[in-house]
Amino acid sequence: MSTAPAHETLGRPVNATGRPRGRSSPLGSRLSGLPWILPAIVLVIGLIYFPIGYLGYASTLNWNGFILSTPTSIGDANYAKMFGDPVFWNALWHTVFFYVITFSVQTFIGFTFAAVMHSRIRLGNLYKAIVFVPVVLAPATMAPVFRQIFDQFGQFNWLLSSIGLGSLTRPWLADPTTAMPVIMFITVWEWTGLTFVLYYAAMSQLSPEILEAARVDGAGNFRTLRSIVWPMCRGTTAALAVLGLIGALKTFDIPYLVTHGGPNHGTEFLGTYIYYTMAQGKHFGYAATLAIALLVLAVAGGVLLRISTSRSDKE
């Protein structure tokens, strides 16, 4: 279905939107729901799509981003530059790696914890609150704390030494090979609460009868979890996979605040690279180009994931 007719309607006075368009039954217009979604559409088109269009235009410029400075048009040179930019490809690779790991770990912990919390546990509400509080805190709030924890003299090294793993202590943020896992750890710390809450919610939808039936059939706890509960939470997993991918592509706060994308671009993501290019590198046009690439990737990734999960749903 094309968007053109709907778009045309958008510009008219609101009361005109419901005019029957011939194809519809005499009772109902195909457009009858439009006024209901109109406020959201206006908000999103006006404030998100306009900026996207603007970025598309800016991506053809050589411009420092200051409104009073005159830009020069350079066509697709920024795009050519992007495809040859090792930092860009590096950031992409980091994103993929980061997404696969954080998503798996979050799903595992979130799912397990949700199952545990649905069992009879003392202090359950307190535990749930503790896991969810990181979601609520601004990343900027916790960044200095994590920098300290993973420092040479930080609590993590102290913990390692006190359990006899002193040989493993090191400044964790100083080496790209250890800084990236730290970034992932912080991300998992921050977002598992959300994963947990969603699984917890999905599990409370399951009817006790099914679980009971499984138990009568002699299935153990883990068997039940794996073959009954997990498949029934597939919708949640699929949605989290899409949200996680989008989140991974947008990753900005944590690497920016904790490692500044370093050392040596070792924790560089598209988000940090775009911000750095724009704010410190003063190449707004190039930053816009990277932003457009990010949007394309995010939309494509989201659609692909959505299609693949809905296909597996049907099977």
Binding site: Q152, R170, L173, A174
Partner: peptide, 12 residues
């Protein structure tokens, strides 16, 4: 010091 590139001058 070890791990210098992991630190910031300010605040670390």
């Amino acid at each position: 010091q070890d791990g210098a590139v992991g630190l910031q001058q300010y605040p670390d």
